[in-house]
Design a protein around this nucleic acid. Structure first.
Lengths: 167, 167
DNA sequence: CGAGATAATCAACAGCCTTAAGTATATCAG
DNA sequence: CTGATATACTTAAGGCTGTTGATTATCTCG
């Protein structure tokens, strides 16, 4: 895996991995904060976990059982119950019982939910456009490819970790 | 600012900006979730906002008044009060009064806090190493540069936004 | 001194997180 | 069929963070 030594751990030294670590941490933090504020807008009135839950259902374009939804969105089942409660109150999703196994609860996004997600994604794209305005097209392409591979690496580590946890 | 039209908004079409938007959103979400679990480890027992607050003080390497800290970490003053309360309980930071202006509260990281941050950064780097193991050195370099520019764009938009908000 | 601005905290309430316990349904051995 | 066990989800309690609006202490300036 680590066939070469990219970084010697000299205190005070900053290796490339540490730089990426810091950049990703900061981008994650800032992106979440800004997104939180965007979602708080009167047009949307969603929280971040609510958005990601709804987004997953939107992208799936099919009904999804609670436990699968919990795993996909990295939330505990107990947490997800509350999130789906609030989404259902707002009529953005609907709960149904699985026909044959009545223990399972299936969740689907409603038309209202689909519309809302589309609006949020549009607003988010405008934010992104402002943040990336100074990158040229070619850089954008490279960035897309690299981000995809980072994402792949992160999800893979997640899957391999014992019961979804790292540490 | 948007001198060229990179993306026509055709519903259902996926332009490059939308791809970056999605990648960054997903990476942010995953990174935060994974980091949350790492911080929950018995060695650390921190929350994400506590970590970022402590990190800022660590990087600053100087005392910082509450309002500056709130702005730097994108938290409301009211929220930050509680976060600093808990960090102080754990003896990771200390509160002091500004000598001349006694309204201001200055916060400093303690030795204990510095040690903890260093340990967390080390653990985080190991996670990152696993996630980025399949990138070659040159890609890592390019990624660093692009992430820096994304970060710059995001912070700049933040600063220009009315009272720190977008939307 | 007194009015107003500024810095931080407090109070009340909602949402999400964790852990542990509880409920309903399914499965399977005897 | 019955009873034990497993599975899927919900509920409950407690802690942390977020919001808004009020409050306290201090500073500044006329």
């Amino acid at each position: 895996m680590t066939s070469e030594i990219r970084e010697q751990v000299i205190p005070g030294e900053r290796g490339p991995l540490e730089q990426i670590e810091q950049s990703i941490m900061q981008i994650s933090w800032l992106a979440q904060r800004q997104f939180m504020q965007l979602l708080d807008d009167e047009r949307f009135r969603l929280t971040v976990p609510q958005f990601y839950t709804l987004l997953h259902l939107y992208q799936l374009a099919a009904e999804c059982k609670m436990s699968d939804l919990a795993e996909a969105t990295q939330q505990s089942a107990a947490s997800l119950t509350g999130v789906v409660d609030r989404l259902a109150e707002k009529q953005l999703v609907e709960r149904k019982r699985h026909t044959s196994d009545r223990r399972q609860v299936m969740v689907v996004v409603t038309d209202r939910g689909r519309t809302l997600i589309a609006e949020i994604k549009q607003a988010r794209r405008e934010q992104m456009q402002a943040a990336l305005a100074h990158l040229v097209d070619q850089e954008v392409d490279v960035l897309i490819q690299l981000l995809d591979r980072v994402l792949l690496g992160m999800t893979r580590v997640l899957e391999h970790g014992e019961s979804g946890r790292w540490a």
